[in-house]
C-alpha cells in the first residue's frame, strides 16, 4: 500500500514537470533559453483559473491556460528573436513580469492578494475510493495527466521524426547553416518558444485546477526544476522525462518523510539542483547543450 501511495503521489507531482520540461526541450533545442518556464507556468495557472471561473468549465480553463502561456512566450520571442535581446535578461524580466502581473490581476479580478475563489477542476472525486487509491483514480480521470504523459513521446516524435523537428534542431545547433538553406530560422524559433509556452501553460493549468484555485506564486520554482530536468536529461525528451520522474520521486520522498524528520527537508529540496550541477559538470557524460543556445541567430 505504501508503494501505491508513493507512486500515486509521484504521478501527481510529475505531470507539470513533464509538460513544462517537454516545452523546455522544444525551446532550448531551437536555441532559446527556457528560463521563462516558471513565468509561462504561473501565467498559465492564472489564466486557466480565470477561464474556469468565468466559463464554469475546466476545459475553457485549459484553453485559457494554453493561451496565457503562449502569450508570454510570444512576448519572449518578440524580445529575443525579433529584437535580439539577451535571452537570459529577457527571460528573467518576463519571469518578474509574470509574478507581478498575476499578482496585479489577482487583485483586479478577485480582489484578493492571496488566492482566487474556488474554480471547477477536472472531475476526480476518486469514485468513492479512499487514500492512495483515491489519488490514483483522480489522476486517471484528469485529462491533463494523460496529456502530460503523452507529451513526452509526441515531443520526441516531433523533434526527431518531422521536418519541423529537423529545423528546430538545426536552428538551435547552427542557425546560420539553416538560414543558408532557406530555413526561416526566426519563424522556427518563434514556433518552438510558443510551443514551450503552450506546454508550460498547461503545466500551470494542471497546478491551478488541481488546487481548484490560483494562489499567489503557486508555481513555487517548479518551472526552474523543469529547466533543471531539461539540462539533467541532456535536452533529449525521453531522458528529460526520466529526470522529471526522478525529481518527482525525490519530492514525494521528502513529503512522506516530513513527519519522520530523518533528513532536513531542505536537503531533499536541493536534489534537483545538485543533480543538475553534477550533470553540468559532466559526470553523467558529455554535456550536449545545443551549440547555438542563448545566441541570437
Amino acid at each position: 500500500m505504501i508503494v501505491v501511495a508513493f507512486l500515486a503521489q509521484v504521478l501527481r507531482i510529475v505531470v507539470p514537470y513533464l509538460l513544462a520540461a517537454s516545452g523546455g526541450v522544444l525551446s532550448e533545442r531551437a536555441g532559446i533559453v527556457a528560463l521563462t518556464l516558471e513565468g509561462f507556468m504561473l501565467t498559465g495557472a492564472f489564466t486557466a483559473t480565470l477561464g474556469s471561473y468565468y466559463a464554469g468549465s475546466p476545459w475553457v480553463g485549459l484553453l485559457a491556460g494554453i493561451a496565457g502561456g503562449v502569450a508570454l512566450a510570444l512576448l519572449l520571442a518578440l524580445a529575443t528573436v525579433r529584437y535580439k535581446a539577451d535571452q537570459v535578461v529577457a527571460g528573467i524580466a518576463l519571469n518578474l513580469l509574470a509574478i507581478g502581473g498575476t499578482r496585479f490581476f489577482l487583485r483586479y479580478a478577485f480582489d484578493s492578494s492571496s488566492n482566487s475563489p474556488r474554480v471547477p477542476g477536472f472531475g476526480g472525486d476518486g469514485g468513492g475510493a479512499v487514500g492512495a487509491a483515491a489519488t490514483l483514480a483522480a489522476s486517471a480521470q484528469n485529462p491533463l495527466v494523460w496529456i502530460g504523459i503523452l507529451t513526452v513521446p509526441v515531443v520526441a516524435w516531433l523533434l526527431y521524426r518531422t521536418p519541423f523537428g529537423l529545423r528546430v534542431r538545426a536552428a538551435g545547433e547552427k542557425p546560420e547553416a539553416a538560414r543558408s538553406l532557406g530555413v526561416p530560422v526566426a519563424r522556427v524559433r518563434v514556433l518552438a518558444v510558443a510551443g514551450a509556452g503552450a506546454l508550460a501553460g498547461l503545466a500551470g493549468t494542471y497546478l491551478a485546477l488541481d488546487q481548484h484555485q490560483f494562489t499567489d506564486g503557486m508555481t513555487a520554482g517548479r518551472g526552474f526544476i523543469a529547466l533543471a530536468a531539461v539540462i539533467f536529461g541532456r535536452w533529449d525528451p525521453k531522458r528529460v522525462a526520466f529526470a522529471c520522474v526522478l525529481f518527482a520521486a525525490a519530492e514525494t520522498f521528502q513529503i512522506q518523510l516530513q513527519g519522520a524528520q530523518l533528513i532536513p527537508s531542505q536537503f531533499v529540496e536541493m536534489i534537483p539542483y545538485v543533480l543538475t550541477i553534477v550533470a553540468l559538470a559532466g559526470v553523467v557524460g558529455r554535456s550536449a547543450a545545443p551549440a547555438a543556445l542563448g545566441k541570437a541567430e
Binding site: L166, R169, E173, K174, A177, A178, L181, V183, A291
Partner: peptide, 15 residues
C-alpha cells in the same frame, strides 16, 4: 555551414 549533430543526409535535405 553544416549542423554537426545531424547526419549527412539530414544536412543535405534540411530546408
Amino acid at each position: 555551414m553544416l549542423v554537426p549533430t545531424l547526419t549527412v543526409a539530414e544536412n543535405v535535405v534540411l530546408g
